[in-house]
Nucleic acid binder design. Structure first.
Length: 980
DNA sequence: GTGGTCTCCTA
DNA sequence: GTAGGAGACCACA
């Protein structure tokens, strides 16, 4: 190194954390290896390399190195055992990336420097000192204030992300002192993130002023008695030694023994092939293209590197003191470092951690003042993780009022913030002398708390972890807070373990399963039934135990479950099909759909009238008054009293009276059964829809359903309170109910639905040429099937022939059985069996698909959709034949139904940005499995219809390119009935 | 009051 | 034959 040379020193460890927190999580597609930080790191490094090739800037480096921390135990720990003791383990999905990033640096052909017992900062200081002594210049690529002490003649700090270069003047501007006094300033101020104590009560402003007045730290400490402010004087005297210790801690060691001499840091032209081989292995397509273009290498000619895998005995995660260090990563014999297969290891270590979990309710905090809240949340800024949970006074997120919020920042470290608690005595309190505050203690005013929470819940560097985050997201949305970024333990569990045998993904259940701990139930806290009390009037200490525990459990669950996503290859299902849907559904629920109360009440009236007439007729025919709604009483009347020939079908030991039985009786000429069928239909429509829906309307006349994202095995959504996915459509009277779902003045409802999506997916997955051809040509698929099977020409085909084929097509999707088909078509089982055989003869690919799917499910215990979603069927190996058969049918159905569900989820995720980009204001309101309902301004209808159809039709791309077209029918009208 | 059974609404 | 939710009834506590 000589005069005119320029050394670039990159603070690699700082880079890693910055890249990690600034960017959304990203995983390598092929195996789910987390690579978000690697990607950010490579992009930043490449930018730096590119810039440095540009000699016009005049700071082109001749020497270059990337410096890393080796482990967090350094000589400073001997000075002060608490140094950096408050550091927590790095985020779990970052851990496996440390080794990959070192690999990246080598792929860039840059020296990768680290040393046992020293921090990156010490190495940087040492190289800087030597370079300056040799007459060169130095650019330190970092924004860490600890490095500011090195700034001086020939040395600047470069913050690449902000594109800011800091020389002595900029340091002075930022901290009020020139770089040479930075050490003294840091000694006074201390550093919470490194646990450097400093002097209490002295912040950067005061420190700068004191140093200005007294010159340096020693002088200041010696003359501390002269200081006028009593508190400041006492502290400086009392903590003088602590300040001196702090100074030693923050002073960088310029004489670190170097393994790689300065002159070896000479910058070479990057080896394009080596770099591209690495980038291709990481599957960074954009960066690969950019690098290939700049270095003029053809990326397709370069063979993708293989990233070797090795399992270290101890991963960084197992040793909290290892911090960001690469200590566990060994080198291969050929000198090439090998990577640890950390995801699987991490899963194991987290399982152990979870099994050992213990819960201490008394350790949970109740936060009642602003300062404590800020302090607690500051811990999340350190860890980058914040589990949270909201407590409200109603079950639905749309109606609930915020009663409190709980948080956890580390296992066992949790707190509850009461916000809307009231005196348990309720109104009696009005008569009492004591105010509510005197009785239940202080609470932070809601608006104040929200103002403190907002920047944290919206902080892109803090991952918020929740259980069923749609609920909490919606509650916070109603208070003007958009929670991001977030993870959802319920959805992680769902992506991992959607299963027909496991009952669910609720927190209590997950806690028992993974943590071996039964959390306090809501019932325990608030009682149930008539003894139920609102949570707002429960004793705050007990609510703290309950609520903080929920946040604690959520955080611990996240630690166990999240690593499994990458390890089991389910990260993309979670990241693409689950997580992004949360805010979309939250907004749909918040909007609700407008309902015309008058229409419903008119229908109720009409149904009531008919019902009354029917009841009289029924009593007349039965010869006595009885409750036609009671299957038990009805069975006794029909088969007992009237002695009708009852196919005496029972399951719970009773007469079966379902429609099928009643219709058979009616066909034999008995008048009563058909009256019952009619009465039931009306009662159903009235009781379930026209009478009940108005109870769900809000003041604006809108109904807000609640979607469950994790209650089906296949990936479908479900809707409840009320269920808007089962609004009648088949009968005319039923359809009338749909006319009550309307758009407000000046708008229309748009309904867009996939035509035959499941059959199309079946045609693609099972690869059936005739079916695919029929879909390509846009033929009537059921008629085509009938024609293939029964040899009847499509022209002039009797409707019954087509109906049978249609039933078979659906039967196939449902995992057909002769029994089921016979039931559906009311034909003998032998005949149904014949149909199925013939179907398999005509479409042998279907049988192959079914056999292959069953075999796969038996081998793996699950089946997969085209998008990688898994549905588990452990009972498919049951010794019980009917249980086994049931699981086989479900396993055959799940990839088809599930793929369709994935497709519409993708469409929903893309819909809002697509509409926004087109400048359209359509609002998505409902999803009914293969249909989306929107509210659209009249004048935008024409532009919206084709866009919506396009987004839906192209939803599988680019991940899956179906070999059949997806057809979407979209229509606008005044109400749902007319639009459908 | 809670939970199970039956029935029926949807895709 | 697949996947759901919900209302009514009824037996149990």
């Amino acid at each position: 190194m000589k005069k005119g040379d320029h050394l670039f020193l990159v603070d690699g460890s700082a880079y890693i954390f910055r890249a990690y927190h600034a960017l959304p999580p990203l995983t390598r597609k092929s195996d789910g290896l987390p690579v978000g930080a690697v990607s950010g790191f490579c992009n930043m490094l490449w930018k730096l390399v590119e810039e440095s090739r540009d000699t016009t800037v005049g700071v082109a480096p001749t020497h270059f190195a990337v410096i890393f921390d080796h482990s967090s135990t350094t000589f400073r720990n001997e000075l002060y055992d608490q140094y950096k003791a408050n550091r927590t383990a790095p985020p779990e999905d970052l851990v496996p990336q440390f080794a990959v990033i070192r690999e990246a640096v080598r792929a860039f052909d840059l020296p990768c420097i680290e040393k046992q017992g020293y921090e990156a900062d010490d190495l940087i200081a040492t190289y800087t000192k030597q370079a300056i002594a040799a007459g060169g210049d130095v650019t330190i690529v970092s924004s860490d204030k600890d490095l500011m002490q090195l700034v001086g003649p020939g040395v600047i700090l470069y913050d690449q992300m902000k594109d800011k270069r800091l020389g002595p003047e900029e340091v002075k501007e930022k901290f009020g002192v020139y770089p040479e006094k930075m050490i003294d300033l840091q000694a006074l101020v201390g550093d919470t993130s490194d646990n450097v104590p400093g002097v209490p009560g002295i912040g950067p402003k005061t420190a700068a002023q004191l140093l200005d007045d007294y010159g340096d730290l020693e002088t200041l400490l010696e003359r501390a008695e002269e200081i006028k402010q009593a508190k400041r004087r006492e502290n400086l005297v009392a903590f003088a030694e602590q300040a001196r210790l702090s100074k030693r801690l923050v002073t960088l060691d310029c004489d670190t023994p170097l393994d790689t001499p300065l002159d070896d840091l000479f910058l070479n032209e990057p080896d394009g092939e080596k770099l591209i081989a690495f980038l291709k292995a990481m599957e960074f397509t954009t960066l690969t293209r950019r690098v290939a273009a700049t270095l003029e290498v053809s990326a397709s000619d370069v063979e993708t590197a293989t990233i070797a895998v090795d399992t270290p005995a101890r991963g960084p995660d197992l040793d909290p003191m290892a911090g960001s260090g690469p200590a566990a990563i060994g080198g291969g014999e050929d000198g090439a470092p090998r990577l640890a297969l950390v995801p699987a290891m991490l899963v194991e270590s987290r399982k152990g951690e979870a099994a050992a979990a213990s819960f201490d309710h008394s350790a949970y905090l109740t936060i009642r003042d602003e300062a404590s809240l800020r302090d607690f949340l500051a811990e999340a800024t350190e860890t980058g993780i914040l589990a949270f949970d909201t407590e409200t006074d109603a079950l639905s997120a749309m109606n609930g009022k915020l009663v409190g919020v709980s948080f956890a920042v580390a296992p066992g470290r949790a707190a509850y913030v009461p916000l809307g608690h009231v005196s348990p005595n309720g109104e009696a309190d009005l008569l009492s002398e004591r105010s509510a505050e005197e009785e239940i203690g202080p609470q932070i005013p809601l608006e104040t708390a929200l103002a403190i929470l907002k920047p944290v819940l919206e902080d892109p560097a803090i991952l918020k972890v929740g259980q069923n985050t749609k609920y909490d997201t919606l509650v916070m949305m109603r208070h003007g807070i958009v929670v991001a970024p977030f993870d959802d333990t319920m959805l992680i569990s769902y992506a991992l373990d959607a299963s027909a045998s496991l009952s669910g993904h609720g927190m209590d259940e997950l806690s028992e399963r993974f943590l071996g701990h039964k959390p306090i139930s809501f019932k325990d806290l608030c009682g149930s039934g008539r003894n139920a009390r609102p949570i707002a009037s429960c004793e705050i200490e007990r609510v703290t135990h309950y609520a903080a525990e929920d946040a604690d459990v959520t955080l611990r669950l996240w630690r166990v479950l999240k690593p499994r996503l990458a390890a089991e290859g389910l990260a993309s299902v979670y990241e693409r099909l689950e997580k992004p849907l949360v805010p979309v559904l939250a907004r749909m629920e918040e909007r609700g759909i407008m309902v015309d109360r008058q229409i419903l009440s008119r229908l109720s009236g009409r149904f009531a009238q008919k019902q009354g007439g029917l009841e009289a007729e029924i009593a007349e025919l039965a010869g006595e008054e009885f409750n036609p709604g009671s299957p038990k009483q009805l069975g006794e009347i029909l088969f007992g009293k009237l002695g009708l020939p009852g196919g005496k079908k029972t399951k719970g030991g009773q007469w079966s009276t379902d429609v099928k039985v009643l219709e058979e009786l009616a066909a034999e000429g008995h008048p009563l059964p058909s009256k019952i069928v009619e009465w039931r239909q009306l009662t159903k429509l009235k009781g379930t829809y026209t009478d009940t829906l108005p109870n769900h309307m809000d003041a604006a006349g809108r109904i807000h359903t609640s979607y469950s994202m994790a209650s089906t095995t296949t990936g479908r959504l479900s809707s409840s309170e009320p269920n808007l996915q089962n609004i009648p459509v088949r009968t005319e009277e039923g359809r009338a109910i749909r006319t009550a779902f309307v758009a407000p003045e000046g708008k229309k409802l748009v309904s867009a639905d996939y035509s035959q999506i499941e059959l199309r997916i079946l045609a693609h997955i099972a690869d059936i040429p005739q079916l695919k051809q029929a879909f390509v040509e846009g033929l009537d698929i059921h008629a085509m099937t009938a024609s293939e099977m029964f040899g009847v020409p499509v022209e002039g085909m009797p409707s019954d022939v087509r109906r049978r084929a249609k039933a078979i097509n659906f039967g196939i999707i449902y995992g057909i059985s002769a029994f089921g088909l016979a039931n559906q078509l009311a034909i003998p089982r032998e005949e149904a069996g014949l149909y199925i055989r013939r179907y398999f003869e005509r479409f042998p690919g279907i049988r192959d698909y079914m056999d292959a799917t069953k075999a796969f499910a038996k081998q793996h215990g699950y089946v997969e959709t085209l998008f990688g979603r898994r549905a588990h069927y452990p009972d498919i190996k049951s010794p019980n034949a009917s249980m086994r058969a049931f699981n086989e049918r479900a396993a055959i159905n799940a990839p088809i139904q599930g793929t369709a569900a994935d497709v519409i989820r993708r469409a929903m995720v893309r819909m809002e940005p697509a509409l926004a980009e087109a400048g359209l204001s359509a609002k998505m309101l409902l999803q009914v499995h293969d249909e989306l309902i929107f509210e659209v301004p009249d004048e935008e209808v024409d532009a919206t219809l084709p866009l919506v159809a396009k987004v839906m039709a192209e939803a599988p791309l680019p991940r899956v390119d179906l070999s059949v077209p997806l057809v979407v029918d979209a229509k606008a009208a005044e109400n749902w009935e007319a639009a459908h």
